[in-house]
Amino acid sequence: MNDKGLVNFRDIGGIQVPTGTLKPRFFFRSGAISGLNQVQSSFLKEACRIRDIYDFRSTDEVQQAPDTTISGTDYIHLDILSDKTANGASLGAMITSGNQVRQNMLKTYESIVLSQSAQRGYREFLLGLLQDHQPVLFHCFAGKDRTGFAAAIILKIAGANNQQIMADYLLTNQLRTKANQALLDQFRDQMTEQQLDNLHTALMVDADYLTHARDVLLNQFGTFDHYLTDGLGLPSDFVAEFRNLYVAN
């Protein structure tokens, strides 16, 4: 599918799982969708048939760069990391924090699993998938961390294995190449070499981040199913209901 220049955009459906195939053209992920042109807006509305847009960014991020309005869609803002960003954690803080970017990213993924705001947000997101049963686009700023974990949850619920989940997660580094370079070029005259290096690191995903999130999840909840029921508060039959709707035999 031609992404029409949308950053880090893809359909995560179509993969084979033990019980069939995760249906394509239902779950689209991307980076921020502010400032879209008419071709891009029409692509999301007409070709992708997007009906719900889930925005995982902070309130500040949304105010600075609101999503382009696409007629016929419902917009849902879920501030996944509001608990963390309220305490001063941000991309900007990571950039200026010496050489601690990787450590900060690992802490961010802990918050993505354990913070109340993340658990509330992912719960609402997943319940919405069952209620509406129509194509959705979910995104954050870069479409890599908050969005990457959401995609991992969907794929895991569908029955994907760890290799399939990681492959989708790491695809971000390929699909963000141009956007990352543009950001580096934009700030090249305003940052030190250390800060630029930090920015480059912060804009990338790393297998260690998602693996760390998985380890934190299992340490806290024991199993992925317990994360869904005890962490997110989803009903015990959620996985079965999801697969009934979205996994084709």
Rank of each mutant, 00 (worst) to 15 (best):
A213T: 12
F56D: 03
N87V: 12
V101C: 07
A47Q: 15
D55T: 06
R176L: 13
G143Q: 08
E124W: 00
D215F: 02
G35Y: 07
L127S: 06
A118R: 02
G233H: 14
T73P: 04
Y227P: 05
M166V: 14
G14S: 08
A93L: 04
L217P: 06
L81G: 01
Q40L: 09
I154R: 00
L170S: 10
K23Q: 14
L217C: 11
L217N: 08
G31S: 11
Q16I: 15
I70W: 01
G92E: 15
I15L: 15
K4M: 15
Q116G: 11
A89S: 09
L130H: 06
D145A: 05
A240C: 05
Y54K: 05
Q131A: 14
D215W: 00
A160T: 07
F141G: 02
A160D: 10
S82P: 08
N37K: 03
N180T: 08
L6D: 09
H212M: 10
D145I: 03
R57M: 07
N87Q: 11
Q119K: 15
G222S: 05
S97I: 05
M204Q: 14
I112W: 02
I80Q: 02
G98S: 12
Y246V: 07
A240Q: 11
E241V: 00
T177D: 06
S58L: 00
R120Y: 03
F27Y: 13
D67E: 10
G20R: 14
N2F: 08
Q163K: 11
S90T: 10
Y122H: 07
M166S: 09
V247M: 01
L218H: 12
L184C: 06
S82C: 07
S90Y: 00
H212Q: 12
D215L: 13
I157C: 04
S82V: 03
Q186F: 10
T108D: 11
Q116L: 05
V205E: 09
R123T: 14
I95R: 07
G143I: 10
T147E: 06
G121N: 07
G233F: 05
D230L: 12
Q119W: 02
S236F: 00
G121V: 08
D67V: 06
E193V: 14
A86H: 11
G233D: 13
E46Q: 15
L175E: 12
D55C: 05
L155K: 02
G35P: 13
M1C: 10
Q181E: 15
H226M: 02
G128N: 11
T96N: 14
R25F: 03
L155T: 08
A65Y: 04
I76L: 02
S97P: 09
G222K: 11
D189R: 14
Q100V: 05
D83I: 03
L184E: 03
D67W: 03
R10A: 14
D52C: 09
S30H: 07
Q38I: 11
L22G: 00
L129W: 02
T201Y: 05
F27L: 01
L36M: 13
L22T: 01
G148C: 10
L155E: 05
G159C: 01
Q186D: 09
L130K: 01
I33Q: 00
V136F: 09
V205T: 14
F9H: 09
